[in-house]
Design a protein around this nucleic acid. Structure first.
Lengths: 341, 341
DNA sequence: GAGGATAGGACAACCCATTCT
DNA sequence: AAGAATGGGTTGTCCTATCCT
């Protein structure tokens, strides 16, 4: 049995190999591979055939080393955040029609944002789309000096000149949540915040403003939380120990809310009968029937669309309104909220 | 205010720029950037300083265009599978000490495996680590002819010469689940399978064998399912309509089990009082208190470790036992199983 | 103080594709 | 449709200054 052509050569076939086999120049092969005009139908056919026979595959790196455009959008995301993975899926969908590719770089406990961005830069991405970046604003500004940077779901104040921001109106979302709860008769509504997490400050502010607007300033209670289940669970324990105990809680996000629900459940506290709980994001987590979480929904396809749109606009020199793109949230009422007892 | 050096030039600084500034050759700069011996401490210092001043960053693509090694492991994973994202995190951790980097390529409804692999190959990955690949065995074999391929969690029969397989003993896992249920007094145990999904055949077989071993051959009932919540939910509806109704179900995986739980819950069927449910994977999903799913746990760090190990072994010409690496599963008993009524 | 080993550094070819002539 | 220059780095070869015995 004869070895396959590719395996035989020991190394990947190149343009030159295809050219030799088809009896043409590498330039012509290049033309054909890029599906550009400049080759007759007959030659095109012959070259394609030759390429197929030896299993030729263009080398993306060599290609973009030469052409100054890489058409690569670097995306940094949190592996364990359903909100982020949902976003990534929509980003793929948004990038393709625009003629760009996505390079993924994950952030996880064992992999820092710094590492994630470094690898994206080394890969010659043309622009960076950062999902909920936690890096200092100064660092983002510095990056933005080198290439277009879009921060998704993380606001920058003061509007950081170069960094484009695409986000949900977090304060408005928190307001909707509070309005909903107040409408159900709740007055003692606590907020488990996200600390320094992206969006946390706005949600906190939205919560405070809404509470005050309803004349509930005295009931404002912010418990330190975070964006993971564990942090939500810890906050819930603090909440259970509090007297008086609030009748409703707005958690920083769905994961945090899930941690809260877990703790309440294990403590025998009925949800929503004794305590109503609201999350934020409307990630797939919230939709699971067991969780069935009332939550402030973010428009994920919309965010992705705008993020790609703004990155591309900057890359292609189109006028891009510097500053923020703010998308409205929409409260999704499910089973974890009910009228105050 | 003067623009930064990098922003000023309009394009990224190159080796030549650093060399010019430090007054040395590009070759020497290259040596220093790679932290290789061949430069004196003094020049090394001077070059590092120059590089820092102009914000030089090596171009990963140009670099590996020249050096035949890319030290890049391509990983294909399902964005929405918690089991996969957990695995990815462990893969990052396993690759670094081995001196390799990870290139991620996601599979999602809008992005096929074919596309995912194409982009990995175009990026000149040295080996492919595919998480639960669904591609035809012939396709995998073809790929394996070009570069080392490790299939994680997807068995290939007959042992596909070139493709390394790292997986959990799925049949053994299914057996553990059935044993557990039988031990609790269940006899009418159904299995919602994964159809053609990786591992599905083995789990199905393990289920059948275990049932038969317990003298319950007549109670064997396999319902068509899948690996998503929706497919689990659909199967659960079929299950509810069945007479007699089984008292326990083994679902293909945790997502599927979650869909089952959702449907049962919404139909007012008590779990585990009326029906016990077992999942597979022990992903984070199963651990959430609301779900609190009894499940067959896979050793995720172990799978990742072996996957990287086998890819690296092949790349570095170490002896790699062709064929399978099989890791034992471990049943994790939580709250969705109880004694038969 | 001459001959030889050694380390520091320069030069140029090369990797694979694109693009200009 | 061919030929050659190009892009950013790596690497093998070769030269030279330095240190040794």
């Amino acid at each position: 049995m004869s070895p396959s052509p590719t395996a035989a050569s020991g190394k990947r076939p190149t343009l030159a190999d295809v050219a030799a086999r088809a009896g043409v120049s590498t330039a012509l092969v290049s033309t054909v591979m890029r599906d550009t005009k400049g080759a007759s139908a007959a030659t095109r056919e012959r070259i394609l055939q030759a390429a197929k026979e030896i299993g030729y595959r263009p080398d993306a790196r060599a290609r973009l080393l030469r052409s100054h455009r890489s058409r690569l959008l670097g995306v940094q995301f949190g592996l364990q955040h359903p909100f982020h993975t949902d976003l990534v899926e929509c980003l793929y969908a948004a990038a393709e029609p625009a003629g760009y590719q996505i390079a993924l770089s994950a952030v996880a406990p064992s992999r820092s944002e710094q590492q994630a961005v470094e690898s994206l830069l080394a890969d010659r991405c043309e622009a960076l789309i950062l999902l909920g970046p936690q890096a200092p604003a100064a660092r983002l500004a510095e990056l933005a000096g080198q290439l277009p940077v879009v921060s998704v779901a993380r606001r920058l104040r003061p509007p950081c000149g170069q960094v484009a921001v695409v986000r949900t109106a977090d304060d408005e979302g928190a307001r909707q949540a509070v309005d909903h709860l107040v409408g159900l008769g709740h007055r003692d509504i606590a907020h488990i915040d996200g600390g320094r997490a992206p969006g946390a400050a706005d949600r906190r502010r939205g919560y405070r403003t809404a509470m005050t607007g309803h004349g509930l300033a005295e009931h404002v209670r912010v418990l330190p939380g975070g964006l993971t289940e564990d942090e939500g669970a810890a906050a819930a324990r603090a909440l259970l120990a509090a007297r008086p105990r609030p009748t409703a809680v707005l958690a920083f996000n769905d994961r945090c809310a899930t941690g809260v629900l877990d703790t309440l459940l294990r403590s025998g506290v009925q949800v929503p009968a004794e305590i109503s709980v609201i999350g934020f994001d409307d990630s797939r987590l919230a939709r699971l029937a067991h969780i069935d979480l009332t939550t402030v929904g973010q428009d994920i396809p919309g965010l992705a669309e705008f993020a790609v749109g703004r990155a591309v606009a900057r890359l292609e020199g189109e006028p891009d309104p510097e500053g923020e793109t703010v998308i409205a949230p929409r409260l999704v009422v499910r089973g974890t909220t009910t009228a105050a007892g």
